[in-house]
Simulated assay, not measured.
Amino acid sequence: MTGRPVLLSVRDLCVEFPAVAAVRGVSFDVREGEVLALVGESGAGKSLTARTLLGMAPHTARVTGSVRLRDRELLGAPRSPYAGLRGRHIALVPQDALGVLSPAHTVGDQLAAAVRSVRGLDRRRARAAAVAALDRVGIPDADRRAKAYPHEYSGGMRQRAVIAMAMINEPELVVADEPTTALDPAVQEQVLGVLASLREATGAAMVLVTHDLSVVAAHADRVLVLYAGRPVESGPVERVLTRPRAPYTAGLLASLPPDEPVTDRRLPAIGGAPPSPAELAHLTGCAFAPRCPLAAGHERCRTREPEPVAVGEAGHLVSCHRWQDTPDVPTLARDLRRERGAA
């Protein structure tokens, strides 16, 4: 992947609301055909970052930084730079299909409208493209199902339909915002498999927002871990998930249910809770310090926010003053269980 051209370049992206800093200095690149996963707890800024890439930040937000799609700057243009980009070059797969699909129109009509708006096909050809798109995502009897309304689809079928809508014009970049959150595990894997197959067939890159690290391991090339709106670790999936250097990343991995039966049935968990966005405006040190097992007695963790540093090679970055002391995941899992037992 490292030899491929950069498709999307994000630098120092900040999204602020009155008295609230929600995304703080996020930077990353996505190369052609690459899958970058954004992970972190609820409120980490994953979805807001992803939707800002599409020009979909709330109108009350103040957005600064740089978002470039190839050579085109998307932030700060006098007219919306997304006109002509959405659908053709950038597409969204949301977590709530019912929020995208209109209940008043058939699924086939909505897919046909999506392809006509970009390609300018006549009604007959657009209809044929819609049926073919439903067939590609595994909707059985696609010609008949194209005439059905969204409420006549199951949850998994609706999610396949919005994937078909996102991919029907073969965009260069797909932003998938927790696309399988509301589905059971078996259907989740089927839907993610459909999305992966279509992406590979078209060569599209993807920004995948998820809280599920098993999905990251199976479907992503690189991962960016966010905490309190700021990156704490990033790099190739195999490096970050097998040897995390940020205590927060290690804590997320340590909190996963074990693969093997254990005598201690207490599930490990990171203690405490993330700071609220309003608290971040007054932050002076590392946002994770109040929950971090390494921060106790270290004034620097509480007074200075860490900057990213390179760890080895392959673009592995970590933002932590004490990254060299981060325990391995099994040790941290044991310690977290002990803390839960003492609580």
Rank of each mutant, 00 (worst) to 15 (best):
G271E: 15
G25E: 05
L198R: 00
V162M: 09
E200R: 15
A314V: 07
G65W: 14
A176E: 01
T331R: 11
P258W: 08
T64L: 10
E279S: 13
P247V: 00
P140A: 06
Y153D: 01
C292T: 10
I90E: 13
R322I: 09
G272Q: 11
G33Q: 09
R302D: 00
Y82N: 05
R31K: 13
H211I: 04
R243P: 08
H298G: 01
A196W: 08
P179K: 12
T263R: 15
P150Q: 12
L75E: 03
G156V: 11
R68Q: 14
A133E: 04
L54T: 02
T202Q: 11
L8Y: 02
E172T: 00
P179G: 01
A182Y: 00
W323Y: 14
G40D: 03
R239T: 09
L294P: 08
D325A: 14
A342R: 14
R144M: 14
S117F: 15
V194D: 02
G25A: 02
C286S: 08
G120H: 13
A130Q: 06
E34P: 08
R304T: 13
E32D: 08
S9Y: 04
T106F: 04
V209S: 03
M56F: 14
T181F: 01
V30P: 00
S47G: 07
Q95S: 10
V115K: 01
A289G: 10
S276C: 13
P327M: 14
S255N: 02
G33N: 08
A314E: 14
L208M: 10
R304I: 13
K147C: 06
P277W: 09
R144L: 13
V223R: 07
S42V: 13
Y82W: 15
G271D: 11
D177Q: 12
V67E: 00
A220F: 08
L7M: 04
Q110H: 12
I139C: 03
T263C: 09
S234R: 15
R127A: 13
E299S: 14
A220D: 00
L13D: 01
A21K: 11
H298R: 14
E313P: 00
V39M: 04
T64V: 12
E152W: 07
T249D: 09
A314W: 09
A77C: 12
Y248D: 06
P94C: 10
P330R: 13
A61T: 11
A50K: 11
H298L: 06
A130E: 04
G40Y: 11
R62W: 00
R322S: 05
V329S: 09
H151W: 10
P18F: 05
R144Y: 14
R11G: 12
A113Q: 13
R230L: 05
A176N: 01
P236H: 09
A104C: 11
L101D: 05
D325P: 10
